[in-house]
Design a protein around this nucleic acid. Structure first.
Lengths: 136, 136, 136, 136
DNA sequence: GTGGTCTAGACCACT
DNA sequence: GTGGTCTAGACCACT
């Protein structure tokens, strides 16, 4: 997992780490069950304080994405990428997606381009289910 | 424009107002060139400080979505929903979209369902293919 | 709200603060909507670091018990003490209660005494609903 | 004794084992004097390290609930379910019960429901009134 | 004046 | 060797 941060971004570093880990899991770079680097190690690699990494991992744990063990460190939850049935989280995701799509529309991004970008990104994630049946 | 806030949300109030305005424009509730309520009026309607509304409007102005005139108040920019050609903003939008899609994938939402939701939402916004058809 | 900590306890300080705040709300010392002290102020009062208070407040916020505003500080949520309809949290509470009751039983505390202690404690919290209809 | 662990819980594994053993004793599944499975056997059954089981057993021993013999293994103490007269432990139990009840109140659980749940749970444990009736 | 973020380092628990 | 807690202090955003 190679992880690039933007220290000048308004997005807090711990949030960026959280986002990059989620993307690494979606991309298949981090498989379900895989080990994450230790908070101290990742802190050294990213040249940031390990407390900041800790905060990112704690966020991922609360989101049900990773498991943290005091001894063995952090691992991607084995049941990740499987439907959780958390209706509240689904609703929240859709609300955020709707806002993002509205922004694309308001900024004049052509609907066809947006849809194409999303289709491509989604299908770039490994794993068959819901794949592209022809061109639909 | 009917605007509902969630005071308990982690999303700051000003950000929620900004999001709802963007959605109202995408939905066609607020047409290009239309007047927004005055900051004081909206503050009263939402039972919040008008400074918070000002902050939301200022954010929308910096994003190139509305125009603010000290005298005539805030209006939706007439050229909204047309491609701005701001490559940096496009890149930023795609990065955020990618993170959101990765989150859907990691949470186990079926790709077909995600794509269907996005297609439906996008087509729910009035207007042909995003941007002036005679302009492309 | 007067708050006493046991610095030698195995229970982390932030957890103790969380517990004491919950008790203060149940006791009616902190009414729904009431202000909590600022993190810095409470830190000074308790002679602990304000970060530790922050952690306690963040926990209370995530539990839906308080609301935190960057400007105006922390307040008890106005809708506290009203059923939230969060079935998962109810189940979790019952599981913890069952464990605690099992411990009382195993330690030989007479059931009548346990029930009496719980009845008394519960009825010591102000607010009528579900009160003691006679002796049942 | 059938024992189910939640590896994703915030509660450490050893604490979960301790809790389940206490509940099994309260439920009468494990009688006073009964043998507990060996740490290695239980470790295999639960697919966890036997050291974690040892830690749970050691905690139960320190709580005066089981006895551990290097040769014959762990057994439920014969005098369990009888008043120990440990005032400190009683005070501690009441403090924890008070916090749990305060949480129920703050979360809006009706007092009558809480009392009913506790009464039912308590009466679900076999045995008269907690402790030896001839002894009081 | 409020909370939020980040750094830094100590000490602890758990293995 | 791992994460968790706590202290301490800086700087920032928001009002």
């Amino acid at each position: 997992m190679h992880l690039i941060l933007d220290l000048d971004s308004e997005t807090p570093i711990y949030q960026q780490i959280r986002d990059r880990v989620v993307e690494a899991i979606a991309d298949g770079e981090l498989a379900p069950g895989a080990d994450l680097p230790s908070t101290r190690q990742l802190g050294v690699d990213l040249a940031i304080n390990f407390h900041t990494v800790s905060k990112a991992y704690d966020l991922l744990r609360r989101e049900g994405i990773i498991r943290i063990n005091r001894k063995s460190g952090a691992v991607v939850r084995p049941d990740v990428k499987q439907p959780s049935g958390d209706a509240g989280a689904d609703t929240d995701w859709k609300r955020r997606a709707r806002t993002l799509l509205a922004e694309a529309d308001v900024r004049g991004l052509p609907k066809a381009d947006v849809l194409e970008f999303i289709r491509t990104t989604l299908h770039g994630f490994p794993g068959g289910e819901g794949g592209d049946p022809g061109d639909r």
